[in-house]
Each structure stands twice: as structure tokens, then as C-alpha cells.
Design a protein around this nucleic acid. Sequence first.
DNA 1: GTGAAAGCGCTAACAT
DNA 2: ATGTTAGCGCTTTCAC
Lengths: 335, 335
Amino acid sequence: MAKTVETIATALNISITTVRLVLNNKARQYRISEKTQKRINDYVAEHGYTVNHAARSLKLNKTDTLGLIIPRLSNVFFATLAEKLEIRCREAGYQLMISCTYSDLKQENALVDALVDRNVDGLFVVPSSLQAQNHHLKRTSRPLVLLDRDFDGTDTSLVVSDNRRGSIALTQAMFSAGQLPLFFMAGDTEQPTIKERMKGYTSVLEAQGIADCQQWILETAHNRREDGEKLMQQFLARHNAAPPAFIASSLPVLEGALSVLRSHFGFIPADINIGTFDEHPMLGFLSNNIWSVRQNEDAWAEQAVDAMLHLINGGDENVRAIVPMTLIHRARASL
Amino acid sequence: MAKTVETIATALNISITTVRLVLNNKARQYRISEKTQKRINDYVAEHGYTVNHAARSLKLNKTDTLGLIIPRLSNVFFATLAEKLEIRCREAGYQLMISCTYSDLKQENALVDALVDRNVDGLFVVPSSLQAQNHHLKRTSRPLVLLDRDFDGTDTSLVVSDNRRGSIALTQAMFSAGQLPLFFMAGDTEQPTIKERMKGYTSVLEAQGIADCQQWILETAHNRREDGEKLMQQFLARHNAAPPAFIASSLPVLEGALSVLRSHFGFIPADINIGTFDEHPMLGFLSNNIWSVRQNEDAWAEQAVDAMLHLINGGDENVRAIVPMTLIHRARASL
DNA sequence: GTGAAAGCGCTAACAT
DNA sequence: ATGTTAGCGCTTTCAC
């Protein structure tokens, strides 16, 4: 359906080069006659023309396509990040291919392989482990920008949130609010993001002279709803009462924890002080005092795409961007 | 970096055809000698081989890529839908290119153009209007599957939720709960989805003998948070009290409406009966009686991909799939 | 059982 | 100012 340069050239009885020149706006530069230009432009106006990306890719060995590999789109944070990245990539002339790993290592590696096989010009990845990260590095010769998790061990380009400081601000605010103990429900403690959040938490409490705040930390293996449920169930079994205050290491954990409270008490006790990482408008549905730490997806996207373009254009310094977080407080509903 | 078939052939001093035959598992069929097969397999095992998609695309005029155009990824419903579609497409051997329109008509058309130019094998689109829909149809000769909105006027393949019945179930449940009037906060009443939801609503109330339930409908132009805020502000200005019960036409509208209630009263009055379209775990954060109507993204994805594959494989009947919705009730927190 | 060659549409380098 | 050509890596067709 799409006309080729050759079609146009033969139809107009001009050479392919000439057509290409005006199509690529080099007409001026190569001083193509006005008349010829007009003929070509008229033809295109009538019959249309679009480059054949496949042919172009084959010749130039680049696809004008970037890959993004994240755990899951149904997680609002990653969805928003994907959205922001997609906008900026498109602005830069790249299409984004988004794929999800569902936190499955095999899947993650397979996805990197698939996108590399499709010859993407670069890859954004949220790695699940150092091992995976190394696989990706080995697998592609194209630029790689890691997101969200700093497993260290390489000098690959990287964009993460300042989880430590974010957690410190959160913990300080909640400590000042005065309800103790302030528990921490941590999913997937192996993950750098969570580790940093825990470090921020403990650093504040220790500075406040809380001797053994480790006892206030509840750990589980993953960052899912079920894990939050499990933690809160365990808590209730042990203490037989709701915690006066707690921090959830992520929204899914919070959802799980609160759903258990709701079904245990019949409602979510409004006097619990709640803290969580990641922000969501629906947190306003709670009657509680609630603090959330927002990640700035827009800044992430900007930094990540900048880093990517830099690498694509032959730059070799890797970027390590640490994006500030924002603490948001919703005051407990007054009665 | 990637080896080509020719590289292998010359390295092994065999013809290209032979190499291709074993690479494509036609060795048996063409009775390539075991020895030759082994030589080739060994070589590949050592040096690797991946087809060059660009070359393949150029020759075969297909990209093994599908496009998905949705309003926005930061909307959980679309994000989840995208996720489910991506899984199924990948299973079928296709990569998905996801792009967002931000409800901008120009952007929507431009995206379709961009993906068509990239020669995607097919396109899933959530159209913003009949006009846009027609543009897309005209623009591509490849299969098109419309999602979410039935503007009618064409016999293109289509997957939508059974909004009418979903709304009927919701309205009946809330009517039976007994708190009246039951208002309906409707964003973007031009959109078929919302229209159907309103029709379901009015049909139930009229059947119940509510003479003029039109007065219970509050309308606004869009489906965003701000629109929900506006509606609830208007409501409060007029009635100077919270509604005893209301239905929001979508989650963003609900978020907006509730945030206004929260800032007006200092809390969200727990005795309001709330209904909403689309389901979200965080609805459980509310203390209210709340009904939500879930759309089955998984079923959508299955139907949409099936329809797409059918068309890609030369089928010509268009599918019109209407996916049932599920009513979910969360009982008001007991005290 | 294996080989040779054309051609998909583009770009870049080299003619004139 | 305009024209010619080689070649990117694959698939398909035909030939031995």
C-alpha cells in the first residue's frame, strides 16, 4: 500500500536520489530545482509516502525502538512510570515496547533476550536481582538503563528514588506524631529499595534512642497483597490488638494489611497512624492520619531518557540519578 | 554481533539453504544428513544465532508486532487491560506497542498513523469518538480491534463490557439497600460506555416507579478527578448536605467526589451508600457500604486477541464481544 | 539432499 | 543538480 521511493522516482521519471533528497529536506542543500521539488511534493501530497521502517532498520541497524521491562503494569507506580517514559521516548522519536516480568526471573531474562533479538536501540529494565542484572548486561551490546533498584556491582546507568531520605522523612514525621511503637511491615527485604527504606527507618529510631527497634520490624518475602495480609495476621495473632502506628513498605503490602484489619475488626480503626511508600489518591479514602512518600515518576522518566539518549549518541559516562521523594500527609478526619 | 545464516553457511562451507532448513526444523522433511545437522547445531550452540527481524519484516511485510492505543496507563483499568493483552500477545508470538492518547483526538490519530507507518500487523484501539474511529479504519488496511467503546456505525471487531446489565445490577442492589435518593454522577455523557451505564440506571429506577429520576443525575463533560470534584461541589452548594447514596460513573469521578466530601466535612460520612464502576482493592479503605462493578480485563484480552488473530489469519467475520461485569459488595464497617 | 539467485525498500558512497 | 550502485539478512523459487 505504501509508496516506495522507487515508485515515485519512476512515476516521475527522476532518479531515486533526487526524490530522497527532497523527501529528506535536503533539497536546498543539494539545490534541487524548484520545479522538480514541486513535482515530487505534489506527487507525495496526492499519493502519500511513508518510509518503510523495516528496510530502514535493516540498512541502518537500528530500530528507533526502545524496550521497557518492569514487574507489572497493574502496579500504579510502574504504570505511571511507563506512561511518562513512553511520552518522552516518543518525543525523542522512539517507540517504547513495554513488557512485564511478573517478578519471574526466567521471564525477565527471556524478555531481555526477546527485545535484544528484536534489535531495540536500548533497554530500560527494573532488574529483579544482581544475577538478572548481569544477564542483561551480558546479553546486550546496546545501552542499558536500570531503574528502581540499585544492586550495585556494576557501573551501569541507573535511576532510583532517594529511598533512604524519603524513609527518614516519613519516620521522623510519624515519630513526632507520637504514637508508638511504630512498626514497619517490610515485604521482600532482599530488594535494595526496601533495604534502603528499612535503613532510613532504623536510623531515625536509633537516633531517637529506641534501643531495639528491630523488634518493631515485621518481615516477609515479597511485596504483594498476600504478604501484607500475612504480616498483619501474624501481628494480630501475637498482639491481639491493632498496631498504634505502622509503615508499609509498599502499597500492595498496605492493601493486604488493611484488608485484614477490616475483616478482623469489621472496620479499619481510625486511630492507627499509617505510613506507606508510594502515593495514591485513594489513600484519601481512609479516615486515618496517613503519610505517604511519593516517587517522582516524571523526574525518573526525564533522567532515564536523558541517560539513554546520551548513551545512544555515543556518550560513555554512565549516569547515577537519585530522585528525591516527597512526603505527603493527610490529617486524620476530624469529627 | 548476531550471526547471520550466511556467516554460518560459509564458516561451515555449506549452502545457505541447508543451514536454513535445519534452523527452521525442516531438516527431517528435506532429509538433511545427520552429520550436517550436527555440524550446524554445534555451531549454533557455540556461536548462537538469532534471526534478524528487520530483514524478515522487510521480506515478509509483517512485523510480528501489534499496537495498543489507550487513553492512559495511569488509569488502573487500562493498565490492567494492557497487561493482560501484552501477556496474550506475547504468547501468540507478537510484541505489543502501547501508546497513550491522553484523550486527545489529534494525538490519537497521530498515534494510529505512527503505528501504521511502523507496519504493525494489527491495532487495538480505544477510540475517543466515531470520528476518530473512522479515521483509524481509513488509515490502516491491517486488522483493527476496537475496545471499550461502541460508537456503532461500523462493523469493526469490538470488545466491550456489558455496561447496561452491570449498571442494572448495581442500581438494583443499591436501590434495595434503601437509601434514597440515589444520585448518579456522570462524567462524559457522550461516551457510549457512560451512556449505557446511565441507561441501566434509569431503567431500574423507572421500573421502580421513580417518576423523574433524571433529576438525580449530575452530569459533567469528562471522566477525570476534577470532574468528580466539580460535581460534588455543585451538589453540596445546592443541597448543603451529603447525598444519602450515589453512583460514580468511573473511579476518577469517585475519587474527586470523595475528596470534596472529605475536605468539606473533615471526613467521608460513613453512612453514604456508594456505588462505582470499576473495581479497586483500595475501595476497601472506605468505611461505607460500597458496591463496585468490576470489568473482566482477562476476558477482554482473551476475546480481543482471539479476534485479532482471526483477522490476521485471513478471517473476515468481525467479532462483537460483550463481556459480563461482576458486582462486588463491601458491607459497611460494623462498629 | 544441497545450491544459487532474486528481491523486499532503504541508505551511503560514488559518479557525472 | 541529478543518477547509479552495492548491500543490509532474510525468504522463496527453481535448479541440480
